[in-house]
Amino acid sequence: MDESTSLDVETLKITQERYILEAQTVQLHGSSCDPVYPVGLYGWRKRCLYFFLLLLLIIMIVNLALTVWIIKVMKFTVDGMGYLRMNQEAIRLDGISEFLLPFYVKEIQSRTDSPLVLRSNKNVTINARNSQGQLTAQLTVGPGAIEVQCQRFQVRTTDGEKVLFSVDEEEISIGTDHFRVAGPGGSVFGRSVETPLILADGSQDLKLESPTRTVTMEAPRGVEISAAEGKLKATCRKDLELRSTEGEIFLDANTIRLGSLLPHGVYSPHWAPRRPTVYELCVCTNGKLYLSPADSSSTCHSMSNFCLWS
């Protein structure tokens, strides 16, 4: 190793020792001269922190008090809340309940000692739908009417065995033993009525009337009109027609009277002075009846000219 190399190494050592001494000196001077800063919150920051902690505590107490008050007012229990009780089988509501949105339920049943009341300011609508969600039946109770939309409407007895009233698109069926109309106007039918028996009450009269049209009674095996304890009266404005296409018209009574039947015909001269008060009943070929003065023999033939005039 030459002399220049040894000088460089010694110079490097001297420089390193000098740097270490200077660094130690700087550390000694720095540790003795650094300022000391206090740790923590002081002044207005501390007061703000305490204020926010106090406000948070007050909010928590108020929130807890409101929660306890709501639980007490709403009557929250393990079984439910208020008048609502829930179990595995059903939900029970005691008192008045209000539903603001559609209510879907399988069965609604009231208590055994109180009725079930449904109230609404406008109407109460009950819908029935199939598995596809399509409307199959609807019951609407409104302020002016009760509307039922279904394929068939039935009213049954309490045991559900007998149908009392049934309505569909084809017919209306009444299954009661008696159908009573208590109104003074009676029953008004716009079209035909099919029934095996029309019977009046024991203390009332039976009246079949058509004010502006005709009354027609038809049956494939005959029509029977019977008045067991009273009289039978048929009144019309124009013609009363009794017609039998294949049989006969049979009038069977102790006395058959034809009231308001005026005498018609022309008297012969030899009958004029006698002015008879007894007449015989004659009939024309067209079925019209007339009276002829009675004599020892029939005078209908002599008065037959009346049939030509009528």
Rank of each mutant, 00 (worst) to 15 (best):
E218V: 13
Q204A: 14
S192V: 07
L116H: 00
E3F: 08
D34G: 08
N305Y: 12
F99Q: 01
M81K: 01
T277P: 04
L208H: 00
L164Q: 04
G259R: 13
E280M: 09
E171Q: 14
Q151W: 06
T277D: 15
A227L: 11
L118N: 00
V9I: 15
T140W: 02
E22N: 10
K122L: 15
L251P: 02
I174Q: 00
F99D: 00
T212E: 13
C150F: 00
L251I: 08
T77I: 08
S114W: 04
S226W: 12
V73F: 02
L291T: 00
G133M: 09
S32H: 04
V78M: 15
Y37F: 15
D8A: 14
E241P: 02
F306M: 15
E246W: 05
I146Q: 02
R18G: 06
F189V: 10
I71S: 04
T11H: 06
H29G: 07
F76E: 03
L41P: 00
F165A: 07
K122Q: 13
Q138S: 12
V117Q: 12
A234C: 11
G230V: 03
V155N: 05
P35E: 10
V148Y: 05
R18A: 14
C282I: 08
E194W: 08
I14P: 00
L101N: 06
K231F: 10
F250T: 08
L54G: 03
E248L: 11
H178V: 14
W44D: 12
